[in-house]
Design a protein around this nucleic acid. Structure first.
Lengths: 339, 339
DNA sequence: CTGAAAGCGCTAACAG
DNA sequence: CTGTTAGCGCTTTCAG
C-alpha cells in the first residue's frame, strides 16, 4: 500500500500540506486557482485520502455497524440492502456484524464497537437477548444506535418496527375465518420483541373471537433447528392437534413443512399455515405459503435515515423515535381451503 | 466517543506510554509485574485500543473486504458466513461491499478499497464484468485478492471455485437420462466464468450424448428479472419447445417456475428442471427442485483461509492458486418422472 | 490567501 | 526493564 499522500501533492506543487488539505476539502480560504491546480494533480495522481488518518484526526470513521443475527435470512438481507443503499449515498460504509443469535457474541461485538470503529449502529437483537445493558453501554460512549425489527423496550434508542401485533392479529383472524378451531403459535424466545408482540396479536385474535387460549398451542423455539423440528412434531402430535399455525419468524416455516411432511399431515387440509416471512419464493412452495410480508427494505432504509440524522446531529422528531411500517398479509394456498 | 487511551493508563500508573503499549502487546521486554499491573488497570478501566490509530501507524487495518454482487442470495449469504467465521478467528473484520451486478459499482468499490481501508479482498465478480483491470489495479497497490466462485481468467489471483463444468455436465446428463430430448440452458452473462463453464458442461453432455446443440436453446439473462421472465417465456413458447432446462444461477429458478406457471406447462411433466442453487427450501418447492448445490460455506471459508495466509505473508502453495470444491447434484421432483 | 505547528492514539527504534 | 522521541496522514488552529 504505497499511497499518494497529501504531502506528496504538496511537494509536487510547492505548496504546504495544509493548503492542499484545505483545497481538497474545498475550503473558502483557498483561491480558485490553487484549488483547481490541486484538484487536477490529485486526480492525475489518483490521490485517495487515507481513511484512518482522517478518522484518527477527526474522531469519526464514516462507518456504520449493522449488528444482526444472521445474513442468510430474507428479512435481514433485504434490510441490509435498504441500509446499505441509504448510507452509501452519504459516503458511509457498512460493517456487518453477525451475532448468530448468540447473546455472548452480541455483547462482544457491541463492546468492540465502542472503540470508535463505527460512528453509529443499526441493530436487531438476538433471540437470546433479554437486557439492553450492552446497548446502553454503547450509547453512553456516544455511539448512536437505532434498533430495527427486533427491538428492546429498555433501550432509549429510536426504533423502527412493523405492526407486529396488528399483523399477527390479522394472520390469526384469517385462519379463524378459514375455519381453524385450534390455532397454534410458534415463536422464538419469549423476550424477543417481535415474537412477544406477534404472540400478543395471536392471543388477542383468539380471545376476541371467543377461542380459548391453550399453553399447549404455544411453542417457543430455540436457535437449534433440530430441536425445533422435534418440538413442532410434538406440537402436531398432541391429542388436541392444531389445525392452524402462525409462525413468528421465517426460518420456522420450512420446519413446519417438514414436520407436516413427516407426520403425513397435509397443508392446508389438516393444518393451515401462515408465516411471518420475506421469502421471495413463498409463492412457489408446495403448497404456496401465506405470509405476513414485512417491509424489510423500507425498515432498513428508514432506520438508516434516522441514524444518519443522528450522526449529523440533526434533530430527530419525537415521532421518529418509534416508527412503524405496516406489514401485509399475502394470502396463498397454505391457509386456504385446499380444494 | 471519549476513549480511555494508553496515555491515560500511563498517567495513572506513572509509566511511559511506550511501556504501556508494550505491556499490552505482551512484549518480552516488560517485566511480568508491570505487565500485570497494566493489564489489570486496562481491564478495570475497560481500555479499548483505537483501531484507527494502530491502522494508521501499522499500515494495516485488520479489515477484509468482501465484494459480491448481492447479499439476498443463498450462495452469497452462506459464503459470507464461511468467510466471516474464518477471518473473525484471526481478529479480522468483514466489510461487505455490494456491487448489485453493476460493473461501474464494482470499479468504484475496488478503487475506493485502494485507500487502505482493507488489508485484503475476497471477491466474486458481477455478471457485467469482462475485464479484470480494476482488480489488477488493486493488487498492484499490494492489496491481496482472492476470487471465489465467479472468477476471472485474466486476474493473477488465487481462485476458489466449484467444478462448474463437471457438475453442469452431470446435471444435463441427468436430464438426458430422464428422457429429455431438447434441453435448454439459461445462464447469466456469457463472460461470467461460472455461467460460461456451466454452459460448457451442458454442451459437452449434449454433444457426447449425440444431441445437437441449438442456439435457440441457450438463453443469456440480464440482471433484470422482468426481462428475464419474458425471455424465459419466449424460450418456452418456441416451436421446438425445450423439455428440460438447466439454469446457471439461483435467482433464475423462480423465474422458470413462474414462466411455466403462466404458460400452463407443468414441471416435470412438460419441462424438467435442474438449477444451480443453494436454496435451503429447494425441497419444499412445488415441485421440489433438483439442484446442483454448491459448497458455498466451504468456498467462503477456503477463500478466506488463503487470504489470511497471504496477509500473513505465508507461502501459498501453488496448488492453492486454484482450488476446486465439488458441488453435488441433489435429485428432487422437478427433474423426475412426474407421476 | 498560504504556511507552520500541533496533535489525534498508537508503535517502534533507540537510548538509557 | 523502562523512557524518549519520532512519526503514520490528516485537519485545524493560529500566524503571517
Amino acid at each position: 500500500m504505497q499511497q499518494i499522500t497529501i504531502k506528496a501533492l504538496a511537494r509536487e506543487l510547492n505548496l504546504s500540506v495544509s493548503t492542499i488539505s484545505k483545497a481538497l476539502r474545498d475550503s473558502h480560504e483557498i483561491s480558485p486557482a490553487t484549488k483547481s491546480r490541486v484538484l487536477q494533480l490529485a486526480a492525475r495522481l489518483d490521490y485517495k485520502p487515507n481513511p484512518y488518518a482522517s478518522s484518527l484526526r477527526g474522531k469519526k470513521s464514516r462507518n456504520i455497524g449493522i449488528v444482526i443475527p444472521e445474513v442468510a435470512d430474507s428479512f435481514f438481507s433485504l434490510a441490509i440492502n435498504g441500509i446499505d443503499a441509504t448510507v452509501k449515498e452519504k459516503g458511509y460504509h457498512s460493517i456487518i456484524c453477525l451475532t448468530h443469535e448468540d447473546f455472548k457474541n452480541e455483547q462482544a461485538i457491541l463492546k468492540e464497537l465502542q472503540n470508535g470503529r463505527v460512528d453509529g449502529v443499526l441493530m436487531s437483537v438476538s433471540s437470546e437477548t433479554t437486557s439492553g445493558k450492552h446497548i446502553r453501554a454503547l450509547m453512553e460512549q456516544h455511539v448512536p444506535v437505532v434498533l430495527f425489527d427486533r427491538v428492546l423496550a429498555d433501550v432509549p434508542a429510536a426504533k423502527v418496527i412493523t405492526d407486529d401485533i396488528a399483523s399477527s392479529y390479522k394472520a390469526t383472524q384469517h385462519l379463524l375465518r378459514n375455519g381453524c378451531k385450534r390455532i397454534a403459535f410458534i415463536g422464538l424466545s419469549q423476550q424477543l420483541s417481535i415474537s412477544a408482540d406477534r404472540l400478543r396479536g395471536y392471543e388477542n385474535a383468539l380471545r376476541e373471537h371467543g377461542n380459548k387460549l391453550s399453553s399447549k398451542h404455544i411453542l417457543t423455539c430455540t436457535p437449534d433447528p433440530k430441536k425445533n423440528l422435534a418440538a413442532i412434531k410434538k406440537l402436531l402430535q398432541q391429542k388436541d392437534r392444531p389445525d392452524g399455525i402462525v409462525t413468528a419468524v421465517e426460518k420456522l416455516a420450512p420446519l413446519v413443512y417438514q414436520a407436516c411432511g413427516q407426520l403425513s399431515l397435509s397443508i392446508p387440509q389438516d393444518v393451515k399455515l401462515v408465516c411471518f416471512s420475506n421469502l421471495e419464493l413463498a409463492g412457489l412452495l408446495n403448497p404456496s405459503l401465506t405470509t405476513v410480508t414485512q417491509p424489510a427494505y423500507e425498515m432498513g432504509q428508514k432506520a438508516a435515515e434516522i441514524l444518519l440524522r443522528l450522526l449529523d446531529s440533526k434533530p430527530v422528531h419525537k415521532g421518529d423515535m418509534q416508527i412503524m411500517i405496516p406489514s401485509r398479509l399475502v394470502e396463498r394456498n397454505s391457509s386456504g381451503e385446499g380444494n
